[in-house]
Write a protein that binds this DNA or RNA. Structure first.
Length: 270
DNA sequence: CTCCAGGGGTTCC
DNA sequence: GGAACCCATGGA
């Protein structure tokens, strides 16, 4: 029996911009709605009036979704700060409805390990296969479920050399060497170093996990495109107005750059 | 055929 | 510390 939940006070959140800006690989558009898999539950989301309507079996409660969509953040204030930079302001104006989600920890960790030197359709496919093959009822598998496997078991994913990285991450998570609760108690820099003990997790993947799962908005995923754009747009680093919100600024920047790849390839000298 | 995709490990200097 | 090169896979 399907449940329904209306999230109010969603401000200027745009599902299209939020799901399409490259931070999640688990939502697909169906008409004017989006269908995603979150915590093993298939969810349909659509914007309605002044809120977001969620539908699905066994929906999580409003508190969970409030956290998932970062509705506890004051994005009007964040935009006001970041708009002090003309260039960041341009990126925000292009997609003001982006909100940085807080996604499930283990799933985010494996997803961004899989994302390395990879493209979005293939990342989506591997994550989907991982869930169908090894999760319970299509849910994203637990660390314990993956830790019990070996590389031969993962060969069906066609994930290449990342299979070994997936296993190491799962084993460290299952053993308790890497725990979300532990990371939450550390500084962003300490948490980054801890995550990088996992084979296949470098600064980029670590910061994506910190930003997209733990809500560490001061982390800063060093994407290759961002590095190129930064060198030209912000030769001295991000402006002071982005202090504490480097990750959010980066996500606006990334979406803008990816959507203007043709223009930027010339501007950035790719 | 080559090139590339939201990187990271290893091996050099 | 940084630069070069390697890594499996699939689509363009």
């Amino acid at each position: 029996m399907a449940q329904s939940l209306l999230l109010k006070n969603t401000g200027g959140l745009s599902l299209k911009e939020t799901f399409g800006c490259g931070q999640t690989f688990r939502w697909r558009q169906e008409g004017n709605a989006f269908v995603g898999v979150v915590n093993g539950q298939t969810v349909r989301a659509r914007q309605s009036g002044d809120g977001i309507r969620l539908e699905g079996d066994r929906l999580a409660d409003a508190d969970f979704w409030c956290r998932y969509f970062a509705l506890d953040m004051d994005y009007a204030a964040i935009h006001q700060k970041l708009n002090k930079s003309v260039r960041l302001g341009r990126c925000i104006a292009f997609a003001p409805g982006i909100r940085v989600l807080r996604q499930p920890f283990f799933e985010t960790l494996l997803t961004f390990i899989i994302s390395q030197n990879n493209n979005i359709p293939r990342i989506t496919g591997i994550v989907s296969q991982l869930s169908e093959q090894f999760g319970t009822d299509g849910a994203f598998p637990t660390a314990e479920q993956i830790a019990a496997l070996n590389e031969a078991d993962l060969a069906c994913l066609r994930a290449g050399w990342r299979a070994g990285y997936i296993l190491d991450a799962a084993r460290k998570a299952a053993s308790g060497e890497i725990r979300e609760e532990t990371l939450s108690g550390l500084s962003t820099d300490e948490a980054r170093q801890t995550l990088m003990r996992i084979r296949g997790v470098g600064p980029k993947v670590a910061d994506c996990v910190l930003l997209f799962s733990l809500g560490r908005w001061d982390s800063f995923p060093q994407d290759v495109w961002i590095r190129r754009a930064m060198a030209q747009w912000f030769p001295k680093g991000l402006p002071k107005c982005a202090r504490g919100f480097e990750g959010i600024a980066q996500q606006y920047l990334f979406h803008y750059i990816r959507s203007h790849a043709g223009d930027l390839s010339r501007a950035v000298g790719k």
